[in-house]
């Protein structure tokens, strides 16, 4: 297992190098470098800026600059954010964590909704329940995630006006967050994360449920299921142990791409709920041309993809005993 994972890691190196080249050259193509904004600063003279340019290696040819940048990356230095005047890592890290909370919680909700619905749709094919969920899912597929979020906010606000319940619909913490105990802080964040996470999960459920239902149907008609039934295996075991385990294999293979896809997909929900995740900051960075922050988030995305791929390899070997990593 370990040698296999290491080999996968080595195989992903060319992709990572390619991605860093892409990111670096996009940054170079963008107008201005990170000292351009300082030109307007009356406290810094032109000579000082030229000195800084030389110190940062900005007067060197592009290729040399690229290697400087990669050398710094390897040392964990993602550059300096112009807007925050801080190392990018310090600016980016808390946002990545926030997004991860949201995404992990929503993944949990996502599976809790998607798996039973997909299994139900296959086991009770063409029943009224199946038809209703299928139609609903089809309808949901057309909803952009931010539109779904806006509609949910609309209804929550109506409920809030009608009942006076304090349902949080924005941000990640309450105003009195700092005064709360550790448990209170946890519950407070959970309360704020819950609604965006559920909205995010529901938005993604539609596609997966449809595919899972198809996969289940395909496996339910397989010969080995007939054999299992013939030898008297209980229906529950037939569905969950025999069929389901085979039906989810393609999903587990896709988990690698799930984490980065979810983080990027969560962006719209984050913006609508003004949740302090990655995407709102990324948009601010775009507006202030804070290039190293944008690059930093993209690099984090690549890192998550590599981690996700490793996780999915491990899970695949657990679920599917036919897969042996020799």
């Amino acid at each position: 297992m370990l040698p296999f994972l290491l080999r996968r890691l080595v195989n992903s190196i060319p992709t990572v190098i390619g991605a860093t080249i892409l990111i670096f050259f996009i940054i170079q193509l963008a107008p201005g470098d990170f000292l351009t904004s300082q030109l307007l600063n009356p406290n810094i003279s032109k000579e000082q800026i030229d000195n800084l340019r030389r110190n940062f290696g900005l007067d060197q040819p592009l290729i040399v600059q690229y290697f400087y940048w990669v050398k710094n990356l390897l040392q964990g230095d993602l550059g300096l954010s112009f807007a925050y005047q801080q190392p990018v890592l310090n600016v980016v890290a808390p946002r990545v964590l926030n997004s991860l909370y949201l995404v992990l919680f929503s993944t949990l909700v996502f599976y809790v909704i998607a798996i039973p619905l997909g299994v139900y749709g296959a086991v009770r094919q063409y029943s009224i329940g199946d038809k209703i969920t299928s139609t609903l899912m089809y309808f949901l597929l057309g909803f952009p995630s931010f539109f779904l979020a806006l509609i949910v906010i609309y209804f929550i606000l109506q409920i809030r006006f009608a009942t006076g319940w304090d349902i949080p619909v924005g941000g990640m913490t309450s105003q009195n967050y700092d005064d709360l105990s550790t448990l209170g802080k946890f519950l407070d964040v959970l309360k704020h994360v819950a609604i965006p996470a559920v909205v995010l999960a529901i938005g993604d459920v539609a596609g997966t449920t449809r595919v899972l239902r198809g996969q289940m149907l395909e496996n339910l008609n397989a010969d080995y299921i007939r054999t299992a039934r013939a030898k008297g295996v209980s229906e529950f075991k037939v569905v969950y142990k025999h069929t389901f385990r085979n039906a989810i294999i393609p999903f587990i293979a896709g988990i690698g791409g799930l984490l980065p896809a979810l983080i990027s997909g969560a962006g719209f929900t984050e913006v609508v709920f003004s949740y302090p995740g990655i995407t709102p900051m990324l948009l601010d960075a775009l507006n202030s041309q804070d290039l190293y922050v944008i690059a930093g988030f993209s690099l984090v995305g690549i890192l998550l993809l590599i981690i996700g791929n490793a996780v999915s390899d491990i899970l695949l070997s657990v679920v599917d005993p036919r897969i042996r990593y020799a």
Partner: peptide, 21 residues
Amino acid sequence: EVIASIPYLFLVILLRAMFPT
């Protein structure tokens, strides 16, 4: 592979940064 390795929204924002706002 490189294009697929960067999350979709991040890549769009990164590419959009090439042009002035």
